[in-house]
Design a binder for these strands. Structure first.
Lengths: 225, 225, 225, 225
DNA sequence: GTGGTCTAGACCACC
DNA sequence: GTGGTCTAGACCACA
């Protein structure tokens, strides 16, 4: 916690980073839908920047795998098919499972504090019934989970995966679980951490991921890859 | 309200502006106290910037009157005496009175909405009993009041005055009003706006300001100017 | 009041401050017109200073609101639209009205002396028929008015507002009142102070400001904001 | 598997991608060492490209975490400390463990074929005794392992992690295992896959990773992070 | 003063 | 026409 008015280094992020965040968010929420082309001129105008830094930002997203580059054609938002959904959640499982293990063997106290806070936010969002808010809180919970592992590489990998997972949900909103169910699943995860029951926790996180794949691919019209 | 993920211009403020904000906040909260000298080298290191932009930022604060420049000696945080307290609150009265008049003759609906929100924050802060939070909320209320006038020049002038007013309070915390009283005074202001009673509103804002001067200068040990 | 020949500390102002004054004056008189870009290299050469202090001076004017900063594009003289004219004069009204009140309740004698002198200068300028001289004298009268309030914050705020008001006039010279009218209006203000008629004074200062807004926005081609 | 002579689309990769590969390779092999600054002008000249595409490529590596950006200072090769070594190998463990599971439950035949080939290359490299060749073959083995999982996200994540792991080794070459040992460890992994012994395989891959962390951090002088 | 950063504008290749 | 690419030039910040 910062004492108010303390002198701290001014946080100055590069323009490319700011733009990348903006684009990532737009892709995540579906403002830029899978398959959409990203026109440089338009985007630059909308974002109030010139094409240079915009191109740098887009290359970041290409690197992440959120954009697909076709030479001399342009950049497009990557499209997701059923096998992508599976890939994404299996990869998330790998990352979050490792995070869980690290948490159980590490500083469980801090993790509990942060995750409890995240769960409270999720409950609050569930009460409003707002799908977007619920998704945001869901995502924040899992981001916190990985962050609590203390492993920056896992965090880095999770960041992209969470955005991709969100894309899956955005395209097919109808299959998102009910508010009660969503809260309950995360409550169980938290309980397992509280109880120190690692085996249970790993089983829960596995089913949490794999069930989601089932749900999405069951309900979804097949998208092109 | 922004739809999430909408593409918006990336907000990029200059380094000098960011530093100025940081310094203003530090002065406001007393981390840089009246009379303190601002060493370029130290500050630059603490803020993680080089001396160039730091000097530019400091010149901004000199222009605002928060810093005092002594040639070839350095820059110092301006000290406030009783007559400054009076000056500040009389100037605030001029600005906020004008704002009130504009609000009563302008878009009262929007003003009510924003000020009600600000009052709620103040009530919440009062419940915690945290002096700093209460001051912040108090300040935010008045900033909102002036902002609702729609007059950018009044806003600009208020910005500096609010910081100076805060400096007065920071130096002499003991005289800050009780939580109940604070909330009540602002509630009355809001009620007057709701009722459309301009005459009452102007009387209230006047006493709100002049009473504060009394309270501060009564309770305060005389500071050097 | 300085007794002539008294030895007083020479006011050694910083380079940045001197440069800022130069620039402010240039903007005020239209040598730097609204929308103009301020090239660092050129200006530094013209003023015979290096870029460092020049940048510091320009940041002062940005803080005042006379310049607008576009990141990595440069600094530009702020452009004024009709709503700016309104904002400026309403803000001036707030400041000068407060000053008038303080004068009527304070040392009216000194105020009368200084304002009478200022009015004489205005009359002299009116005789020459030189528009710039008249504007200068007009501005000096109002600066003196606010200065007589004895409130340094009001003076500080007036300083910028007077420059902005002058910019409005510079852009649209044709609407400036006739010499007779100008003198008469200020004579009335002075009379009201002499007579101690506060109510009349406030009414006069209000119409003085608001009429000017009317005159400017009526006669002026709409400028971009 | 390409049948030789088949006509396939030429992989026309963007300039930025090609440059990124070059840089990544240079970092991996230590031609660009941790802490080194990447001067735009120099690099552009050396690579025979202009600064635009170079900047785009560098932003890719920033996104990957191989470069660190300091605003207005430049880009630097990220430095690795002991805790980074741990992070990297734990993350690799998560990725490769998941890959192993997928292989055991998927198309084990193809995996065996590709991994046997990779092991043969490793053996050949071991015979030459060339450290770099051994590292290359080691890396190729693990890249193949993850690739056999068929999960593109795991592949993507492994790509960066393998480069980072290689950086760890490059900095501290002396701790790289003996040729015999290296071959033996990988032979065991292959045997476990052949035998279909998933439990053993997971234990082997875990110790393979964690032992490496031990070895590196034991033998290494503490590097700055 | 040097070098990072961004903008603006031009040219060329592809569709 | 649009995007990919590159150059020129200015601002910005560091040393």
């Amino acid at each position: 916690m910062n004492s108010p008015g303390r002198l701290e280094p001014v946080p100055r992020r590069s323009t490319a980073e700011l733009i990348a965040d903006q684009l990532r968010s737009a892709i995540m929420h579906g403002a830029l839908a899978p398959g959409d082309q990203l026109g440089e001129t338009d985007l630059a105008a909308q974002l109030g920047v010139s094409r240079g830094p915009l191109r740098e930002a887009m290359q970041r997203l290409v690197q992440e795998g959120l954009l697909r580059s076709e030479r001399h054609r342009g950049l497009f938002v990557r499209e997701l098919g059923p096998e992508d959904v599976h890939d994404i959640y299996v990869a998330r499982l790998a990352v979050e499972r490792a995070s869980c293990e690290l948490i159980m063997r590490g500083n469980r106290g801090e993790a509990l504090a942060r995750l409890t806070a995240a769960l409270n936010d999720l409950v609050a969002a569930a009460r409003t019934g707002d799908r977007t808010a619920m998704s945001d809180a869901d995502q924040a919970f899992h981001r916190a989970l990985v962050s609590c592992s203390g492993n920056h590489r896992l965090e880095r990998m999770a960041e992209t995966l969470l955005v991709e997972a969100r894309m899956c949900l955005t395209v097919m909103q109808e299959v998102y679980p009910e508010a009660d169910e969503l809260v309950e699943e995360h409550q169980k995860l938290l309980d397992a951490i509280t109880d120190g029951d690692e085996e249970l926790l790993l089983r829960l996180i596995e089913s949490h991921m794999l069930d989601t794949v089932e749900r999405i691919n069951a309900g979804a019209p097949t998208a092109r890859n």
